[in-house]
C-alpha cells in the first residue's frame, strides 16, 4: 500500500534520513520505533509532503506521492495524528473533528462519521462544545486520533499517540489502534512504548540515526536479544 524507497531527507545541511526503505501492506499495523532524534517524525513529514525528499520516492497505492503538497497527500486517503496532536486550540472539540473531515469526499458525510467517532471516543461526545485548549492531556490525544479518523482514511499515520498518558490510557490507545485495523484502516504507528507496540503491531522497523537498523515480524523481533536489551531492558 505504502512504499518508501531509498528515501533520504535533510533539514538544511544536516541529513537526517539515510536511504530508508519501508513498506506498509494493506490491513497491517506497522510500527516504527527508535530512540529520540532517530528520525521517526522526519520520515512522517517526508511521507505527508511537509519535507521534500533529497532522494528516493514514496508511493501510495502504486502512485508516487512525493512532491505532492500535504493537502494533496491527504486527498489520497492518508491522514495523521501529528506529533504532539497539534489540535486547533481555539476551536471546539466538534470543530476540530469537522476539520478532520475537510477533504471534499469526507465533508458531505461528516455527520455520520462524527457519530462513528463518538462511538469510539465517547468522551469526545461529552466534550464536544468545549474548546480544545481546555481539554486534559488524555482527551487531547483522543481528539487528535478522532480527528484523524474523520476523513475516512485508508492509511493512518500515528506519531506517538500514547505520549504522556497514564498506563490505563496507553492500553486504551493501543486497543483503539487494533480497532482501526479491524475497521479496515491500515496503520503506521510511531511509538516510544516499544513493548506495547511490538505486541500490537504486525511488523516493525527500528530506526537508528536515520537508518533502518532492524525490521521484521513483531513476534520475531520480540525474541531478538538486541531488541530485548536495547528497547525492553531485559
Amino acid at each position: 500500500m505504502l512504499q518508501i524507497v531509498d528515501v533520504s531527507a535533510r533539514y538544511g545541511k544536516t541529513q537526517v534520513l539515510w536511504d530508508v526503505d519501508l513498506v506498509v501492506n494493506q490491513g497491517e499495523i506497522v510500527a516504527l520505533v527508535g530512540s529520540n532524534g532517530s528520525g521517526k517524525t522526519t520520515l512522517l513529514k517526508a511521507i505527508c509532503g511537509l519535507l521534500p525528499l533529497s532522494s528516493g520516492r514514496v508511493e501510495f497505492l502504486g502512485r508516487r506521492i512525493d512532491g505532492l503538497p500535504p493537502h494533496a497527500v491527504v486527498d489520497q486517503g492518508i491522514s495523521q495524528v501529528p506529533e504532539g496532536g497539534r489540535l486547533f486550540p481555539d476551536m471546539s472539540v466538534r470543530e476540530n473533528l469537522e476539520m478532520g473531515a475537510y477533504p471534499s469526499q469526507a465533508w458531505g458525510r461528516r455527520k455520520e462519521t462524527l457519530e462513528k467517532v463518538f462511538q469510539v471516543f465517547p468522551i469526545l461526545k461529552e466534550r464536544q462544545r468545549q474548546l480544545a485548549k481546555t481539554l486534559s492531556g488524555g482527551e487531547r490525544q483522543m481528539l487528535a486520533m478522532g480527528r484523524a479518523l474523520m476523513s475516512g482514511p485508508r492509511l493512518c499515520l500515528l506519531d506517538e499517540p500514547s505520549y504522556g498518558l497514564a498506563p490505563l490510557l496507553i492500553a486504551e490507545v493501543f486497543r483503539i489502534v487494533r480497532g482501526l485495523r479491524d475497521a479496515g484502516v491500515t496503520v503506521l504507528l510511531i511509538e516510544q512504548n516499544v513493548k506495547h507496540t511490538l505486541e500490537t503491531a504486525d511488523r516493525a522497523y527500528v530506526l537508528e540515526s536515520g537508518r533502518v537498523s532492524l525490521e521484521g515480524k513483531c513476534c520475531d523481533l520480540l525474541q531478538t536479544d538486541y531488541v530485548r536489551k536495547a528497547y525492553l531492558g531485559l
Binding site: 505527508c48 511537509l50 503538497p69 500535504p70 493537502h71 497539534r86 469537522e98 476539520m99 475537510y102 476523513s151
Partner: peptide, 19 residues
C-alpha cells in the same frame, strides 16, 4: 473554518487537507 484553523496552526490545517 479552514481560515480559522490556518490562523491557529497552518501546518496542522494542511495535514487536515486544507490547501
Amino acid at each position: 473554518k479552514a481560515i480559522r484553523a490556518a490562523a491557529q496552526d497552518s501546518t496542522s490545517a494542511a495535514l487536515m487537507g486544507v490547501n
